[in-house]
Design a protein around this nucleic acid. Sequence first.
DNA 1: CATGGCATGTAACCTGTTACATGATTCC
DNA 2: GGAATCATGTAACAGGTTACATGCCATG
Lengths: 179, 179
Amino acid sequence: MTSQDVILGMLMKRGLTGYEIKHLLETIFSYFYNASYGTIYPTLSKMEKEGLITKESVLQEGRPNKNIFTITDLGKTHFKTYMNSPVLADEYKSDRMIRLYFGEFVEREVIISSLELDLARANEELERLEANYKLWQPTMSPTQEICIQIGIENTATLIQTLTNGLNRLKHIAEEKGDE
Amino acid sequence: MTSQDVILGMLMKRGLTGYEIKHLLETIFSYFYNASYGTIYPTLSKMEKEGLITKESVLQEGRPNKNIFTITDLGKTHFKTYMNSPVLADEYKSDRMIRLYFGEFVEREVIISSLELDLARANEELERLEANYKLWQPTMSPTQEICIQIGIENTATLIQTLTNGLNRLKHIAEEKGDE
DNA sequence: CATGGCATGTAACCTGTTACATGATTCC
DNA sequence: GGAATCATGTAACAGGTTACATGCCATG
């Protein structure tokens, strides 16, 4: 799974610009993938050279011209090859979790306020995912729905676990304060 | 958060060899971090040159010699700087999720059997995490416990969501079969 | 006698990010 | 007047993986 595979998948439905691809990544894909412009544009150029996609330049008034990329038959073949290749293990690197894991080496308050920030962010993320779900549900395929449900339910669980963890940590902090 | 920060954190408790670091990553850290030997050994060399850690070679009989690395005061300072730096966003790239998202472009059975594999793996992972929890709980710090609880609860939630999703997909498949 | 555990290390490669460069228009 | 949106692109760099190289011992 490289950015190329993900972009090909996005183009299976309709032609897109690099800018639109980035926007999609930030909204619907953000839960399980992302890429910067520094990846997207060079990848699109490379794919065009290889004949996986074609470029159509559209002149616009009052705003920059744009390049709409459309998948070719060769591109579709490549995408299907990807979809039938062995599934790779998830890549997950969490700075939040690392710091929590090593929490014993910093002051308790640092950890507590960090967890509180995580909790606030998780709540925002949950709202965002639920808003997305309501917005796009009518046009989503069944498997897309499962994707967003996984995102929503995992975030809801995270909120629960963080809340429980915070309560326990605060409890320990109070006990220590009583000594 | 680079591998250096994680390794420094691991060495805060006791000296370790590269091999032991890899083992720890695969067992307790696997839920939120990992690194290959190709990262670990060069990073350890670099850290030694920079004076963050010291190397002690231990000759062994019947098995290869090993290098035990110990954190220095400079290393501890670096670790604390990391722990007080701004938290980075999680990096999560999931091939599983990408394929599920684009599931409409392949045969339903491919998706169903893929989800069934995911479910089986999630069950194994849950068992592994729970076994770890039982094994290490007595020696875990409160924040370490929260880490493993997050892992366990998220995995349990994933199992639920996958089960629900599978049921719905099979239902749709049956309806289609009735046409 | 083969597999897995113990143990270290390098070189070639891949993939991606960050920061920079440009510039008009619309909304607050 | 400043920020956000639309829109594309590059160069330098960072950070990592994979495959290879080595080799003994214990277990089945």
